Computed example of a mutant assay.
Amino acid sequence: MKVVVDYGKCTGLGICESLAPDVFEVNDDGELELKQSSVPEGQLEDVEAAVEGCPTEALRLEPDDSSADTE
């Protein structure tokens, strides 16, 4: 899975960073930076919580083109 950010909606509150700090970081200017665009193994639950917890709905998950999961 990959993380997609709508930077036009993001307000840099940092909820995502607190839930998945290996993926999200709010810089000193209050702007969101993705540390990784693909969800690291074992962290899907944390990233899903960050996406669901985003008050501006600026985050979403999409299938990663390089993965061929058939679950």
Rank of each mutant, 00 (worst) to 15 (best):
T11F: 11
A50C: 06
D28L: 10
A49R: 03
L32Q: 13
L59V: 09
E45M: 02
D46L: 04
D69I: 09
G14H: 14
G14D: 14
A20Q: 01
D69K: 15
D69G: 12
G30Y: 08
T56A: 04
G8W: 07
Q43K: 11
S18P: 11
S67V: 07
D22M: 13
D28P: 04
V5F: 11
K9I: 03
A20L: 10
K35H: 09
K35M: 06
A50L: 08
E31C: 07
G8C: 03
K2P: 01
L34R: 13
E52N: 05
L19M: 15
E17W: 13
D65M: 14
V47N: 00
E57G: 06
P55D: 10
D65K: 15
F24A: 09
V47G: 00
Q36K: 12
T56M: 07
P55V: 07
C16D: 11
D46S: 04
Y7P: 02
K9D: 05
V39N: 00
G30T: 05
E57W: 06
K9H: 07
D64L: 14
E41Q: 05
N27I: 03
T70D: 15
V5E: 09
E45G: 02
L34I: 04
V23A: 09
P21Y: 06
G53L: 05
G42P: 05
L44F: 10
G8H: 06
E33R: 13
V51Y: 00
V23G: 06
P55T: 05
D6T: 02
D69N: 12
L19K: 13
P63H: 11
G42A: 03
S38Q: 09
V47A: 00
Q43W: 05
T70I: 10
